[in-house]
């Protein structure tokens, strides 16, 4: 039986796909058989972030509708050989993801993989509900910004009422907060919500803090999951988050600013 992890947020543009790519790559790098599914039917992008956009032949909807087998649709990652990608359809309607169809695919994947990572679309509509329905755990990606925090709280409410675990009266979906685009300098200046602020409002355990970094855009430009930028702070922060997801204790890093000296502030600015 695989552990099913949904990466969700409510709000768009906060880093769900970036996070899905890094978490799935991180799990696979540790030898776990991992598949990452793009649930964003009509606006698929995980393939680009994972650098396999030219290898997509069949997709998730083709498998649900019996037009292709799972083996035909799964794309094996070229960097980490225990990692597979199941791309979303670019042309179909979102409603093509039926509850029964998704369940069938997830059950089949569950027999072959250790981890199933579901990359949710933004919003709280059908695609997002399907992505979270079968989840055992949820990584709630949040920016330290008012609309993102509010939407995350909304998604937490949905996880607690509309997931399969909630409907069946099982143990609740395990929730994790992943704070992304965090800028410790701005937090120090009182311009940005701090980790503690967001933790206090959402009241769920902190999985990690990913610092705002130029590396993220550079990595997506090349179709490289950020976690493979092993020298970078964002890459290491994702590595820590994956370790914590697997139950390791790791101290949080990159949460405070590098103090600048008097001279560098005077002459370099900022």
């Amino acid at each position: 039986m695989a552990r099913i992890i949904v990466v969700t947020s409510g709000k768009g543009g906060v880093g769900k796909t970036t996070t899905s790519a890094s978490i799935s790559t991180g799990l696979a790098k540790r030898g776990h058989k991992t598949v990452v599914i793009d649930f964003d039917v009509g606006l698929r992008n995980l393939d680009l972030i994972m650098n396999c956009e030219r290898r997509v032949v069949y997709d998730f909807v083709n498998v649900i509708q019996g037009e292709a087998t799972l083996n035909q649709a799964l794309i094996r990652d070229k960097r980490v050989d225990t990692l597979y990608i199941l791309p979303a359809s670019q042309t179909r309607e979102k409603e093509a993801l039926t509850k029964e169809g998704v369940e069938k695919v997830i059950n089949e994947l569950s027999e072959r993989f250790d981890y199933i990572v579901c990359d949710s679309p933004a919003g709280i509509e059908h695609g997002a509900l399907m992505a979270l329905y079968y989840a055992d755990e949820a990584v709630v990606v949040t920016n330290p910004e008012v609309s993102s925090v509010r939407d995350s709280d909304r998604i937490l409410g949905i996880l607690q009422s509309k997931s399969r675990r909630a409907e069946m009266g099982q143990d609740p979906v395990k929730e994790h907060l992943l704070l992304t685009r965090y800028n410790p300098d701005r937090v120090d200046r009182g311009e940005m919500l701090s980790v503690a602020d967001v933790e206090e409002i959402l009241a769920i355990p902190l999985l990690g803090v990913i610092p705002e970094s130029q590396i993220v855009l550079n990595a997506s430009n090349q179709g490289l999951p950020v976690i493979l930028e092993e020298e970078s702070d964002a890459g290491q922060a994702y590595e820590d988050a994956v370790a914590r997801l697997l139950g390791e204790e790791r101290e949080h890093r990159f949460m405070s600013s590098q103090k600048k000296g008097f001279f560098s502030r005077m002459f370099k600015g900022g």
């Binding site: 008012v146 509010r150 709280d153 200046r189 009182g190 311009e191 409002i201």
Partner: peptide
């Protein structure tokens, strides 16, 4: 560096507004 800076400490406002709206919506 010597000019007085405009007060941009808005995070506390954000936190207060969020606490109210989130409690209401919950």
């Amino acid at each position: 560096y010597f000019k007085s800076k405009k007060d941009n400490r808005t995070a506390s406002v954000a936190k207060e507004r969020l606490q109210i709206i989130v409690a209401h919506e919950r």
